[in-house]
Amino acid sequence: MGTQLWAILRDGFRESLDRKMFWVVATMTLLIAAVMACISFEPDKIVLLFGMWRIPAEGFDATTEMGKSQVLSVMIQFVMSTLLGWIGMMLMIIATADFYPSMMERGAIDVVLSKPIPRWVLFLFKYLGSLAFVLLQATLFVGLTFLVMGLRWNIWAPGYLMAIPLMVLLFSYIYCISVYVGVMTRSTVAAILISICAWAAYVVPPAALEVVESEPSLRANQALVRAIGFAAAIPPKTADIDYIASRWAKAGTSLDLMPQQQMTLPPEEMERLRERERSKIAANPAYSIGSSLLFEALVVGLAMWRFCRRDF
């Protein structure tokens, strides 16, 4: 069976490379890494284009542990919330949404199913092969930015590389919906639309909870807080990923866990946030990832069951 499994995985890899979107995202990654490489830090200054410009940054010193912590927090936020969270995720959903519908097209699926390979193996390894798209992008992005941070900014945080599997994980929470819809409807458009809706459903409750908790008047409404908290607790826990990434990135270093943008808040508010941050980061990643993976396994399992049972 090794020959067959390797063939399916390699096909997923080739299919990823064949997508124009793959190269668009890869180009974006290279540009971002190049821009980052043009930035360096001096005490109270951000230096652009290798000394061409120096922008004053009062109180910011990336050569200190606090400064490095701030930079790393920004990077984690950037990778998990910006690159993958919005632009990258959208592009990757679009690029991978037709993997299953195109495999299941009449005339294409017939040949594949006439081979001596169990359908569940075909389905599952196609799924893993499809994740190659994100794995390659994540490796490229995190790898390059890791090198830039280390070589240009002297921030070596090996834990930052854990963002690679976490990005793949985060993507897979949404991709499973895309696959389910793709298998049920054989429609790429439906797969894209519904997985974007699902993504919004994952993201909105945790974001709403942030808003409610940060606004004292809303925070006073316990029923509201509980309702949104309940919705935010339903897996997959996409919002936990950046906390887990932050925690793992700074593991084994003396870097502070607080995100950079919260450093300027009043002391009592900062302490409250710090406490909340600690409680979140202290939350068991195994529980967060485990429950989310369970959700993903359920969705993938349903799609696989349908794929295995249906006539083509």
């Binding site: 080739r14 299919e15 009449r106 005339g107 040949v111």
Partner: peptide, 10 residues
């Protein structure tokens, strides 16, 4: 099969 299709990326 009839109406054969092959993956476009191969």
């Amino acid at each position: 099969p009839e109406n054969l299709r092959f993956p476009a990326h191969l």
